[in-house]
């Protein structure tokens, strides 16, 4: 009994030091429904950052771009390039969707790594990247599904459903299954990467507070960017795939 309580005390100490909180949420009640307050707060900050910087940079476009405008033009070129390579020549109407997907995920991921959210204490849970929550990633993935269904139906009408029995009707179950695996893989890939990245950083910081976590943090920044690019590219690829017909 003595030994057990002793080990419990050490555990408690470790638990307090590490301060790892996973799956803790700051609940708000809205009309009988619960929402995760920390996710909403951070997503508002991310949206404010995006809208604010875009407004400032694009407010008065110059023929010869400088500073912020140059950067935002570069970003727009990049997004257009991604959409064009994945969707094809009719990429124009999808640039806002792909671009917002990329920018929102990218800024969310980097905000989790760069902004000192931990300074603000919440009653429970803690502020982190919005993409750290499964609700966000599933929301984005479901929107992607809706988007590619919409793209296919508007482009090819009911003939869109012909893709389910191509190349042979035998593949019908697999083709239907794909519609479920696509959002599942999209959302879980993003969620898992960001959560794992933040967990690794937090655990390493709790174990060795100096220097050692820095390479992992840099790796986390890199992974965050890659994840945003992967999500946007895959969304564009799904949209392009449903728009191109098998003639």
């Amino acid at each position: 009994m003595n030994v057990l309580s002793c080990s419990i005390n050490t555990l408690k100490g470790l638990y307090d030091i590490s301060g790892v909180e996973v799956g803790q949420h700051f609940y708000w009640q809205i009309g009988g429904f619960q929402v995760h307050g920390q996710v909403l707060i951070t997503s508002w900050v991310v949206i404010a950052i995006l809208l604010g910087s875009a407004t400032i940079a694009v407010r008065n476009p110059q023929t010869i771009p400088t500073g912020g405008q140059n950067f935002f033009e570069y970003v727009l070129e990049f997004i257009r390039d991604v959409s064009k390579t994945q969707i094809g020549e009719e990429y124009g109407p999808w640039v806002p969707f792909i671009g917002t997907m990329f920018l929102f995920i990218f800024v969310s991921n980097w905000s989790g790594a760069l902004l000192p959210w931990k300074i603000i204490q919440l009653p429970h849970g803690e502020l982190a990247a919005p993409t750290n929550d499964i609700n966000t990633t599933v929301a984005l993935a479901l929107l992607t599904s809706v988007a590619y269904f919409y793209a296919g139906l508007t482009k090819r009408g009911l003939g869109y459903f012909g893709k389910y029995i191509q190349p042979t009707p035998i593949l019908l179950p697999i083709n239907i299954l794909e519609d479920f695996t696509k959002p599942l893989s999209l959302s879980f890939r993003l969620f898992g990467n960001i959560l794992a990245d933040e967990l690794v950083v937090v655990v390493l910081v709790s174990l060795v507070p100096l220097v050692v976590p820095i390479p992992v943090m840099l790796l986390g920044l890199f992974t965050s960017g890659i994840q945003a690019l992967i999500f946007a590219t895959l969304a564009a690829a799904y949209i392009g795939e449903s728009m191109e017909g098998h003639h």
């Binding site: 996973v22 799956g23 949420h25 809205i30 429904f33 619960q34 929402v35 995760h36 996710v39 909403l40 997503s43 508002w44 949206i47 917002t100 929102f104 919005p130 929550d133 499964i134 609700n135 966000t136 599933v138 929301a139 984005l140 479901l142 929107l143 959560l195």
Partner: peptide
């Protein structure tokens, strides 16, 4: 970790 609630549609609307 996998606690789905009103946050999901809210995030959709925000997006």
């Amino acid at each position: 970790l996998f606690d789905f609630n009103l946050t999901l549609p809210t995030m959709m609307a925000e997006f």
